[in-house]
Amino acid sequence: MAIVVKRPKLRWWEQLYLPGIAKGLVVTGRHFINTLTGRKKVTMQYPEEKWDANLPEHYRGAPALVTDEQQRERCVACQLCEFICPPRAITIKPEEIPSDDKWAKVEKRPGSFDIDMIRCIYCGMCEEVCPEQAIFLRKDYAITGTSRDEMVHDKKKLYEIGGVREGLVNKWNDLK
């Protein structure tokens, strides 16, 4: 069944269209004036202006490694993040902690820990899977580089971004 669309009956001045056009011009004109005088501001001028202060707590930026309050690297190289990582951005080479190290009882640590930021999709699976709470997604989002090598974050860079996280799991602390 066809639907009959009711068309409104136009008065003669409405049929001239000129009042309609004028009305439209007033609407666009008002927007023009408002934007021009700065009364209405929608666009943020990145990178001069940034929204960093307003990023939510759960924002998912670059993944990074953290140390605990005693400067121990939390990561024990269990490679679960490497396993879970959907784009396979993470490469870990585990190594044994030498027996003269302060934390020798932890036995294992990452010898190298590389995250290929060209591959990373910021999904946060690594953070979710980590049993040692050693990897976190920070708020850094502007990851740039001029070569592929530069886009691979190595262990040093990851700890640089990550910094220290206090509290959380403490299964390796002095008491235990």
Binding site: T28, H31, F32, N34, T35, L36, K40, V42, T43, Q45
Partner: peptide, 10 residues
Amino acid sequence: RVSAAIQDRV
């Protein structure tokens, strides 16, 4: 520029 201003852009 004018079209941007009319559409609340920059």
